[in-house]
Protein backbone atom coordinates (compact mmCIF):
# COMPACT_ATOMS: atom_id res chain seq x y z
CA UNK A 1 0.00 0.00 0.00
CA UNK A 2 1.42 3.37 -1.03
CA UNK A 3 0.56 6.35 1.19
CA UNK A 4 0.63 10.07 0.56
CA UNK A 5 -0.05 13.26 2.51
CA UNK A 6 -0.53 14.37 6.11
CA UNK A 7 -1.01 12.14 9.18
CA UNK A 8 -4.25 13.84 10.21
CA UNK A 9 -7.59 14.62 8.59
CA UNK A 10 -9.63 12.50 6.21
CA UNK A 11 -7.99 9.72 4.18
CA UNK A 12 -8.74 9.20 0.50
CA UNK A 13 -8.56 5.50 -0.37
CA UNK A 14 -8.00 5.10 -4.10
CA UNK A 15 -9.24 2.04 -5.98
CA UNK A 16 -7.65 1.42 -9.37
CA UNK A 17 -9.56 -0.07 -12.30
CA UNK A 18 -9.45 -3.85 -12.66
CA UNK A 19 -6.78 -6.01 -14.28
CA UNK A 20 -4.97 -4.55 -17.31
CA UNK A 21 -6.69 -1.18 -16.87
CA UNK A 22 -4.97 -0.82 -13.49
CA UNK A 23 -1.55 -0.93 -15.16
CA UNK A 24 -2.61 1.72 -17.64
CA UNK A 25 -3.82 4.16 -14.98
CA UNK A 26 -1.47 3.62 -12.00
CA UNK A 27 0.81 6.54 -12.96
CA UNK A 28 -2.14 8.86 -13.50
CA UNK A 29 -3.83 7.91 -10.21
CA UNK A 30 -0.57 8.18 -8.20
CA UNK A 31 -0.13 11.65 -9.73
CA UNK A 32 -3.62 12.63 -8.59
CA UNK A 33 -2.88 11.44 -5.05
CA UNK A 34 0.36 13.50 -5.01
CA UNK A 35 -1.67 16.52 -6.05
CA UNK A 36 -4.14 15.84 -3.21
CA UNK A 37 -1.19 15.66 -0.78
CA UNK A 38 -0.12 19.09 -2.06
CA UNK A 39 -3.64 20.23 -1.09
CA UNK A 40 -3.09 18.74 2.39
CA UNK A 41 -5.28 15.67 1.84
CA UNK A 42 -3.95 12.25 2.86
CA UNK A 43 -4.45 9.17 0.70
CA UNK A 44 -3.63 5.49 0.31
CA UNK A 45 -3.40 3.28 -2.77
CA UNK A 46 -3.82 -0.38 -1.73
CA UNK A 47 -2.87 -3.39 -3.86
CA UNK A 48 -5.70 -5.93 -3.97
CA UNK A 49 -5.19 -9.72 -4.06
CA UNK A 50 -3.93 -10.76 -7.51
CA UNK A 51 -3.28 -7.12 -8.52
CA UNK A 52 -0.19 -4.91 -8.51
CA UNK A 53 2.45 -6.07 -6.00
CA UNK A 54 0.21 -8.78 -4.52
CA UNK A 55 1.69 -12.28 -4.49
CA UNK A 56 -1.70 -13.98 -4.87
CA UNK A 57 -2.05 -15.62 -8.33
CA UNK A 58 -4.67 -13.80 -10.42
CA UNK A 59 -6.68 -17.00 -10.87
CA UNK A 60 -7.37 -16.99 -7.10
CA UNK A 61 -8.83 -13.48 -7.19
CA UNK A 62 -12.53 -13.30 -6.28
CA UNK A 63 -14.90 -10.35 -6.14
CA UNK A 64 -15.83 -10.96 -2.48
CA UNK A 65 -12.13 -11.27 -1.62
CA UNK A 66 -11.36 -7.96 -3.32
CA UNK A 67 -14.17 -6.25 -1.40
CA UNK A 68 -13.02 -7.64 1.94
CA UNK A 69 -9.38 -6.80 1.23
CA UNK A 70 -10.30 -3.23 0.26
CA UNK A 71 -12.39 -2.78 3.43
CA UNK A 72 -9.52 -3.94 5.64
CA UNK A 73 -6.97 -1.84 3.70
CA UNK A 74 -9.20 1.20 4.24
CA UNK A 75 -9.40 0.46 8.00
CA UNK A 76 -5.64 0.02 8.16
CA UNK A 77 -5.02 3.25 6.26
CA UNK A 78 -7.53 5.42 8.09
CA UNK A 79 -8.02 4.06 11.62
CA UNK A 80 -10.50 6.49 13.21
CA UNK A 81 -10.14 9.09 10.43
CA UNK A 82 -12.97 9.53 7.89
CA UNK A 83 -12.53 7.57 4.63
CA UNK A 84 -13.39 8.98 1.22
CA UNK A 85 -13.32 6.45 -1.60
CA UNK A 86 -11.83 7.50 -4.91
CA UNK A 87 -12.56 4.83 -7.49
CA UNK A 88 -11.86 4.47 -11.18
CA UNK A 89 -13.82 2.38 -13.71
CA UNK A 90 -14.27 -1.17 -12.33
CA UNK A 91 -12.72 -0.08 -9.03
CA UNK A 92 -16.18 1.30 -8.25
CA UNK A 93 -17.44 -2.31 -8.04
CA UNK A 94 -15.25 -3.07 -5.03
CA UNK A 95 -16.02 -0.59 -2.23
CA UNK A 96 -19.31 -2.07 -0.96
CA UNK A 97 -17.82 -3.18 2.37
CA UNK A 98 -15.99 0.08 3.13
CA UNK A 99 -17.49 2.42 5.72
CA UNK A 100 -16.99 5.56 3.65
CA UNK A 101 -18.00 9.16 4.32
CA UNK A 102 -18.30 9.64 0.56
CA UNK A 103 -17.56 8.07 -2.79
CA UNK A 104 -16.06 9.87 -5.79
CA UNK A 105 -16.06 7.83 -9.01
CA UNK A 106 -14.31 8.48 -12.33
CA UNK A 107 -16.00 6.79 -15.29
CA UNK A 108 -17.53 4.03 -13.14
CA UNK A 109 -18.18 0.91 -15.22
CA UNK A 110 -20.79 -1.80 -14.82
CA UNK A 111 -19.35 -5.25 -14.35
CA UNK A 112 -21.30 -6.51 -17.35
CA UNK A 113 -19.55 -4.03 -19.67
CA UNK A 114 -16.12 -4.91 -18.29
CA UNK A 115 -16.66 -8.64 -18.73
CA UNK A 116 -17.92 -8.12 -22.27
CA UNK A 117 -14.77 -6.15 -23.08
CA UNK A 118 -12.57 -8.84 -21.51
CA UNK A 119 -14.22 -11.58 -23.57
CA UNK A 120 -13.93 -9.42 -26.67
CA UNK A 121 -10.22 -8.86 -26.04
CA UNK A 122 -9.77 -12.58 -26.03
CA UNK A 123 -11.92 -13.10 -29.12
CA UNK A 124 -10.00 -10.40 -31.02
CA UNK A 125 -6.78 -12.27 -30.20
CA UNK A 126 -8.29 -15.39 -31.78
CA UNK A 127 -9.05 -17.21 -28.49
CA UNK A 128 -12.80 -17.09 -28.07
CA UNK A 129 -13.79 -18.08 -24.52
CA UNK A 130 -16.68 -20.43 -24.02
CA UNK A 131 -18.44 -19.41 -20.81
CA UNK A 132 -22.06 -19.29 -19.67
CA UNK A 133 -22.08 -16.25 -17.40
CA UNK A 134 -25.38 -17.25 -15.80
CA UNK A 135 -24.37 -20.81 -14.90
CA UNK A 136 -22.83 -21.05 -11.44
CA UNK A 137 -22.59 -24.84 -11.67
CA UNK A 138 -19.96 -24.64 -14.38
CA UNK A 139 -16.81 -25.81 -12.64
CA UNK A 140 -14.45 -25.35 -15.59
CA UNK A 141 -10.89 -24.20 -15.03
CA UNK A 142 -9.60 -20.63 -15.16
CA UNK A 143 -9.57 -18.79 -18.48
CA UNK A 144 -6.62 -16.75 -19.72
CA UNK A 145 -7.37 -13.26 -21.01
CA UNK A 146 -4.53 -11.02 -22.17
CA UNK A 147 -2.04 -12.97 -20.07
CA UNK A 148 -4.15 -13.01 -16.88
CA UNK A 149 -5.57 -16.32 -15.64
CA UNK A 150 -9.03 -15.56 -14.24
CA UNK A 151 -11.48 -17.88 -12.52
CA UNK A 152 -14.89 -18.40 -14.08
CA UNK A 153 -16.47 -17.46 -10.76
CA UNK A 154 -14.76 -14.07 -10.86
CA UNK A 155 -16.08 -13.38 -14.37
CA UNK A 156 -19.62 -14.39 -13.33
CA UNK A 157 -19.56 -12.31 -10.13
CA UNK A 158 -18.16 -9.31 -11.99
CA UNK A 159 -20.79 -9.68 -14.70
CA UNK A 160 -23.51 -9.24 -12.07
CA UNK A 161 -21.73 -6.47 -10.11
CA UNK A 162 -22.70 -2.81 -9.97
CA UNK A 163 -21.47 0.32 -8.18
CA UNK A 164 -22.64 1.67 -4.83
CA UNK A 165 -25.16 4.42 -5.50
CA UNK A 166 -26.41 5.23 -1.97
CA UNK A 167 -25.01 7.91 0.29
CA UNK A 168 -22.74 10.73 -0.82
CA UNK A 169 -21.67 9.76 -4.35
CA UNK A 170 -20.17 12.02 -7.02
CA UNK A 171 -19.75 10.67 -10.56
CA UNK A 172 -17.33 12.32 -12.99
CA UNK A 173 -17.02 11.17 -16.59
CA UNK A 174 -15.16 12.19 -19.72
CA UNK A 175 -17.15 14.50 -21.98
CA UNK A 176 -17.07 11.82 -24.71
CA UNK A 177 -19.02 9.43 -22.46
CA UNK A 178 -22.80 9.88 -22.94
CA UNK A 179 -23.67 8.24 -19.59
CA UNK A 180 -25.09 10.35 -16.75
CA UNK A 181 -22.62 12.18 -14.50
CA UNK A 182 -22.43 15.02 -11.98
CA UNK A 183 -19.64 16.56 -14.06
CA UNK A 184 -18.10 15.95 -17.50
CA UNK A 185 -14.44 16.74 -18.12
CA UNK A 186 -12.32 16.81 -21.28
CA UNK A 187 -9.71 14.07 -21.65
CA UNK A 188 -8.80 10.76 -23.29
CA UNK A 189 -9.69 7.38 -21.72
CA UNK A 190 -6.23 6.46 -20.38
CA UNK A 191 -7.59 3.07 -19.23
CA UNK A 192 -8.10 2.01 -22.86
CA UNK A 193 -4.64 2.98 -24.10
CA UNK A 194 -2.20 0.11 -24.50
CA UNK A 195 0.75 2.31 -23.48
CA UNK A 196 0.39 3.67 -19.92
CA UNK A 197 -0.13 7.40 -20.36
CA UNK A 198 -0.60 10.44 -18.18
CA UNK A 199 -2.58 13.68 -18.42
CA UNK A 200 -1.35 16.31 -15.98
CA UNK A 201 -4.00 18.89 -16.93
CA UNK A 202 -6.76 16.35 -16.20
CA UNK A 203 -5.06 15.25 -12.95
CA UNK A 204 -4.91 18.90 -11.78
CA UNK A 205 -8.55 19.50 -12.60
CA UNK A 206 -9.73 16.29 -10.92
CA UNK A 207 -7.61 16.89 -7.80
CA UNK A 208 -9.37 20.27 -7.44
CA UNK A 209 -12.74 18.62 -7.93
CA UNK A 210 -11.97 15.98 -5.26
CA UNK A 211 -10.65 18.56 -2.78
CA UNK A 212 -13.86 20.61 -3.22
CA UNK A 213 -16.01 17.51 -2.88
CA UNK A 214 -14.32 16.37 0.35
CA UNK A 215 -14.60 19.89 1.83
CA UNK A 216 -18.32 19.93 0.99
CA UNK A 217 -18.84 16.45 2.48
CA UNK A 218 -17.22 17.57 5.73
CA UNK A 219 -19.87 20.27 6.21
Amino acid sequence: MIRFGPATGPVVVAVLPLLEEANRTRTFVSGMLRRLAARDIASALPDLPGQGESLVPTENAMLAGWRTALASAAMEAAGERPVHILSFRGGALLDHDVKAASRWQLAPAKGEALVRELLRTSAAAGARIDIDLGNYNDEGGPVTIAGNALSRTLLRDLNAADCVREGAVRVVRLDTDPAVADRKVAGAPLWRQSEPGDDSALADLLADDIADWIARCAN
Binding site: A113, R120, T121, A124, A125, G126, T176, P178, R192, S194
Partner: peptide
Protein backbone atom coordinates in the same frame (compact mmCIF):
# COMPACT_ATOMS: atom_id res chain seq x y z
CA UNK B 1 1.17 -1.06 -35.29
CA UNK B 2 -0.81 0.65 -32.49
CA UNK B 3 -3.94 -1.35 -33.41
CA UNK B 4 -3.08 -4.80 -32.08
CA UNK B 5 -5.69 -7.35 -31.04
CA UNK B 6 -5.87 -5.96 -27.50
CA UNK B 7 -6.41 -2.46 -28.79
CA UNK B 8 -9.19 -3.69 -31.11
CA UNK B 9 -11.38 -4.51 -28.10
CA UNK B 10 -10.76 -1.07 -26.61
CA UNK B 11 -11.52 0.72 -29.89
CA UNK B 12 -14.77 -1.19 -30.46
CA UNK B 13 -15.99 -0.81 -26.88
CA UNK B 14 -15.21 2.91 -26.90
CA UNK B 15 -17.12 3.30 -30.19
CA UNK B 16 -20.06 1.42 -28.64
CA UNK B 17 -20.07 3.66 -25.57
CA UNK B 18 -19.81 6.92 -27.47
CA UNK B 19 -22.37 6.06 -30.17
CA UNK B 20 -24.73 4.10 -27.89
CA UNK B 21 -24.62 1.04 -30.13
CA UNK B 22 -24.01 -2.64 -29.44
CA UNK B 23 -21.53 -4.56 -31.58
CA UNK B 24 -21.99 -8.35 -31.52
CA UNK B 25 -18.79 -10.36 -31.36
CA UNK B 26 -19.69 -12.30 -34.52
CA UNK B 27 -19.81 -9.00 -36.41
CA UNK B 28 -16.17 -8.34 -35.59
Amino acid sequence: PELDSMAVAGVLTEIEDRLHILIEDDEV
